[in-house]
């Protein structure tokens, strides 16, 4: 299966290809692989922040703005799955209603579990697919509450961290790791009386870190009223130019690929390592109350040994 940009965009087929990708369909992975050289045309923007910060509203306004410039916009909105039922309630489209049925905006909601391998890996691959199918701007939206969510944000060329005055102590944000990944900070709901103070706090928090050539700006917005969005887009353009001119874009993309391939290798090894036989051995050893360090050594040696034998045919 090969990809040519001359073929008219078939929305139904694209949607189904995304589903196949989500379940690790080899034909789709192969297609992305074969078109690897064509990737990187789209500008990928990650939008993250605490629940209720207004990420979906902001993404909606950004998408609208980009549409006015005539570019095609892809949106990937990730929401958490229930660890108990495996189900998910994906509600980002509620805020995106006003984007209507514009055929140049494609929104896909994703559940955090149910993705093949790691979530970040999948979101990254999904962004690749949007890229290949000619979307100019890809907005990746995730709740910034855990490691994997932070990683998704890092699938982007530019990461926007959204916070609100009501988040209270900005220092909490620093703990969560959000402060380190932002290229741009958005103080949304800036019509709040505490916004000025919160912006000041955020500013001093940002300046605690040595940023190098690019110090993240703070943009005050009221997404629901479309206020401050033009400034946000302006700063995004500035950051995009900065990335291109300094070579940082290429560097970031390389780092991303390093991370992604490392993760894929790790997952492959892990799948081979934890076959049924070893799972049972581990449980037995624990039930026999043997020392953890000894169990570790035995399993590790057994795994290493399997390479010399040359197969893992007893697996699963």
């Amino acid at each position: 299966m090969s990809f040519t940009s001359n073929v008219p965009f078939d929305v139904l087929q694209f949607a189904k290809t995304l589903t196949k990708l989500e379940y690790g369909d080899p034909t789709v992975l192969d297609m992305i692989n074969q078109n690897y050289q064509n990737l990187g045309r789209a500008y990928r923007i990650g939008v993250t922040g605490p629940p209720g910060a207004g990420k979906s509203s902001l993404v909606t306004m950004m998408a609208k703005h980009y549409r006015e410039e005539g570019v095609r916009v892809g949106i990937i909105a990730v929401d958490p799955s229930s660890p108990f039922s495996g189900g998910a309630l994906l509600g980002d489209r509620i805020r995106m209603q006003q984007l209507g049925a514009d055929e140049n905006i494609f929104i896909r909601s994703m559940a955090s579990r149910g993705a093949m391998g790691g979530l970040a890996e999948y979101a990254d691959a999904a962004a690749d697919l949007f890229d290949l199918y000619g979307f100019d701007v890809i907005l990746l939206e995730t709740v910034g509450v855990g490691q994997s969510e932070l990683e998704i944000a890092q699938c982007a060329d530019t990461t926007v961290v959204v916070i609100v005055p009501q988040s209270g102590d900005v220092i909490q944000g620093m703990k969560a790791g959000l402060m380190e990944i932002g290229d741009l900070f958005v103080m949304n709901k800036s019509d709040d009386p505490f916004s000025e103070k919160a912006t000041q706090q955020l500013k001093s928090a940002i300046h605690l870190k040595e940023w190098g050539e690019w110090t993240p700006p703070i943009i005050n917005t009221v997404a629901t009223e479309n206020r401050g969005i033009d400034r946000l887009i302006h700063q995004l353009n500035a950051h995009h130019s900065f990335l291109i001119q300094t070579g940082a874009l290429e560097q970031r993309r390389q780092q991303r690929l390093v991370r992604r391939i490392k993760q894929m290798v790790t997952e492959k090894v892990e799948r081979e390592l934890w076959n049924k036989t070893r799972e049972i051995k581990l449980l037995q050893a624990i039930q026999e109350r043997r020392q953890p360090q000894h169990i570790l050594e035995e399993i590790y040696q057994d795994f290493r040994g399997s390479f010399y034998v040359g197969n893992e045919s007893e697996s699963n």
């Binding site: 039922s85 189900g87 209603q97 559940a111």
Partner: peptide
């Protein structure tokens, strides 16, 4: 959701 489905709720 509790039955394990992925629910897209559009409002």
């Amino acid at each position: 959701r509790d039955a394990g489905m992925e629910v897209i709720y559009t409002g």
